[in-house]
Design a binder for these strands. Structure first.
Length: 320
RNA sequence: GGCUCUGUAGCUCAGUUGGUAGAGCAGUGGACUGAAAAUCCACGUGUCGUUGGUUCGAUUCCGACCGGAGCCA
């Protein structure tokens, strides 16, 4: 759905690592600014994945409309492209209602693709090509596929490491389907300027350990809230390769359910994987100079964070 | 109290026939365009327990001391 207007669309983005308090901040802002929330989270998309994804409950949502949460069954596939379509459509609906769209979430790729107004070119699924390339990978290895890629897309080939199977295969797949190198697609996708009057807020922790402590505590709380049961029933019905089965909090419990590792070990693994995930998110968001970082640690209250965020938004004048 | 073993990176441990040391894990930094909670890359200086001695040179050999473990009393 195209948004036809020359007037910039106000858009608020709330980003940060997992367990940093994005949900609470986005909710507070939605209440104050008459907004609606668009979740940019690759796992909260799925129904039933509630505890592991720290999805806000109906009560916590407090009447604020949330978009892109619980829209798919866990076995279904989803991608950035699907996110982009759905998020744009949500924005235009929210605008039509005269409300402020607030995109909040930890999936950096989703956030950036939306906020930068990336236009992905049509790309039909090509399971057969992918399968063939996977076979070739198994037979001849990454160097060989990289050489193939080099022939028609040296730019991408030189930026990929031979071990990076997924990206190499994807790059070849794109060229085979469209006749255009993926590096060229990337350039074309960025030609339309962003229609948004954007304010990006990021939650920051001066002390990394404080974030990690929050993560550790949240995992314990998830266990207390029944993560084991949720994980068991999800894993039972999901194909191991599905996106949903890769959620942190499920895959680490496989060993426990199989009896090959103790519950304690599995819980430690969840904590560790969550910390690593947070670190990757920090790397992703750190490079974005547009983000206004708000200190969320050092014992700052939700109200203080909210007040600072509110002030930043007012000075940005996006709500004119 | 005696004997034996042991003390090296945040952790578990290698190693140096004497020339100041390296793996795994943890951790840190980075990349990222249809699976992104995924995937991939890079990064190892540490009073070699302390202190004396021998030596051109000691983390390495010897002594004492301080931790830890075990056995005997």
């Amino acid at each position: 759905m195209e948004i036809k207007t020359n007037v910039p669309i106000p858009l608020l983005a709330v980003v940060g690592p997992t367990a940093s308090g994005k949900t609470a901040l986005a909710l507070g802002l939605a209440q104050r600014l008459d907004g609606e929330i668009i979740s940019a989270d690759s796992m909260q998309i799925y129904k039933g994945m509630d505890i592991a994804t720290a999805k806000p409950t109906q009560a916590e949502m407090n009447g604020i409309p949330h978009h892109l949460i619980d829209i798919l069954d866990p076995g279904e596939n989803f991608s950035v492209a699907d996110f982009l379509t759905a998020a744009k459509s949500a924005i235009s609906d929210i605008r039509a209602r005269g409300k402020l769209p607030i995109v909040a979430g930890g999936t950096g790729l989703y956030i950036n693709t939306l906020v930068d107004n990336v236009e992905l070119s049509p790309m039909p699924a090509a399971a057969d090509i992918r399968e063939e390339l996977n076979r070739l990978w198994a037979q001849k290895g990454g160097e060989h596929l990289l050489q193939i890629l080099e022939e028609f897309d040296p730019t991408t080939a030189s930026s990929l490491h031979p071990n990076n199977k997924g990206r190499i295969i994807r790059a070849i797949e794109v060229y085979r389907q469209t006749g255009i190198p993926i590096s060229e697609h990337v350039i074309r996708s960025r030609q339309t300027p962003s229609p948004y009057h954007l304010v990006m807020l990021g939650l920051h922790f001066a002390d990394r350990q404080e974030l990690y402590d929050r993560i550790n505590r949240r995992v314990d709380a998830m266990i207390a809230a029944g993560l084991l049961g949720e994980a068991k029933s999800m894993l039972a019905k999901l194909p191991p390769a599905s996106t949903a089965a890769q959620a942190i909090g499920y895959k680490e419990l496989r060993g426990h359910f199989a009896g090959t590792s103790s519950l304690e070990e599995s819980v430690e693994a969840i904590k560790q994987e969550t910390r690593r995930y947070a670190k990757r998110q920090l790397t992703w968001f750190r490079r974005d100079q547009r983000i206004h970082w708000i200190e969320a640690g050092n014992g700052r209250s939700t109200d203080a964070i909210l007040a600072e965020a509110h002030e930043l938004i007012e000075t940005s004048a996006i709500l004119q």
